[in-house]
Nucleic acid binder design. Structure first.
Lengths: 229, 229
DNA sequence: CAGTAGACTTACCGAAGAGTAAGATTACGG
DNA sequence: CCGTAATCTTACTCTTCGGTAAGTCTACTG
């Protein structure tokens, strides 16, 4: 047994290894079911090291969220800053997002399915990340709206669309994972068709109108639904 | 102190009271952070009663999910079965959904933010509920698509749209909660405008095309983005 | 080759909380 | 008014797990 002693590594390196392990375990088990002993073991280290470096289980989780969140935001932002119309940039950002969650499933799970539960500091960190992405998207939508000053839409509408968009993208990560034939690009294309095309119509004044609240027949207003373009 | 003794009630009634209390506590604290003692106290009863009637903490949670889930599905279905076009029925169902989550916040939180974590029996129950709602929506979208046999779209597309729609609705419950000016109807109207209008366009062959992958200028295809309607 | 700082471990503590044993209390049919 | 079945409680047990005390070991510096 030559390697009874584990190699000593500088703190900076060990910390990352611990976070690596934590992301995997948290992702697989969830925050509460995850046990610190398992994380330390997977990191090839003993438990007190985790507490020495990360302070507490909560601190460890926050570190995971922060690191993975930054990676995700960076991926989105770097794709979406390339010049072009808001439309093109949204396309690029969404594609990058779907690619990220495909390639880093664990990271995404940690950032994702852990909203309720979890004490204040953790939810704060998660909310921060979410807001960060949403802010990017919202800016793009605002730009898109601003190109048509006559649309009558405003920041409130952009904010609504952002939530819908982010929520849809969120849910579609599962769909993507379960359909091997689909790619980040194909999913993004579908989304753009569903949502952006609709928005463009609305910007053009081509809106949907609810049926008469009493009973009457469909009350479609200015909807040229009749023939294909 | 006259009422030292608590009134005795038949099992059927107490069970519902226990579930009432559990929904509130689970909703507020989350599954793991919730403590059975608190639930029993809120139900005006001692802890062993909970175990006698519901078996375990997990069984208690499953009972909550089942009851509240059925309420939600019923609300949606009853609104959406009224005759009319798929469009109208989707409108009615979504409105009922948003109304439900507005009026039963606790129920929704229990059904919602508890995906990862939680052992197999619980996730199974949650998945069942979600699938139940999705199936309703998917049927409506398929009907909508079927009205245009020439669109080239199929069940796969309906399924995609369902996930996007459900995910968006999901995320918009938060948005609705934070904007007192909005109502279930107004949110539904916004959604229909964003998504259904877009889908209608796609059905008409008016699709969105991604920019050229290399670098070239925007490669919009058949997108009459030029002037307002 | 000290000596020190930082990496690392073993072995433990204590609290929290799920679940239960054992029985007390009350309603009610006969 | 008695038995019995159901409701309900007090007072535990037992495990799990976050966190720590008290060092040991090794690499590097002078």
């Amino acid at each position: 047994m030559s390697e009874k002693r584990r190699q000593r590594l500088p703190r900076q390196v060990r910390e990352q290894q611990i976070i690596d392990a934590a992301v995997r375990v948290f992702s697989q088990r969830g925050y509460h079911a995850a046990v610190v002993d398992e994380i330390s073991e997977l990191a090839g280290i003993s438990k007190p090291m985790v507490y020495l470096y990360l302070g507490s289980k909560e601190g460890l989780f926050v570190a995971c969220v922060r690191r993975e969140g930054e990676r995700l935001v960076t991926a989105f932002r770097e794709a979406a800053v390339t010049g072009g119309t808001p439309e093109e940039r949204l396309w690029a950002g969404l594609t990058a997002f779907f690619r990220f969650v495909t390639e880093h499933r664990d990271s995404w799970v940690v950032l994702h399915r852990q909203a309720a539960e979890l004490g204040e500091p953790i939810t704060a960190e998660l909310a921060l990340m979410r807001r960060s992405v949403s802010a990017e998207v919202a800016a793009l939508l605002r730009d898109g709206i601003a190109l048509r000053a006559d649309s009558g839409l405003g920041d409130h509408d952009a904010e609504f669309a952002t939530h819908a968009l982010v929520g849809a993208a969120d849910a579609l990560t599962d769909w993507l994972a379960q359909h091997p034939g689909e790619t980040p690009e194909s999913v993004t294309l579908r989304m753009m068709n569903m949502i952006w095309v609709g928005m463009r119509d609305v910007l053009n004044g081509n809106t949907w109108t609810p049926p008469a609240t009493t009973d009457g027949p469909p009350g479609r207003a200015s909807a040229p639904d009749d023939e294909a373009g």
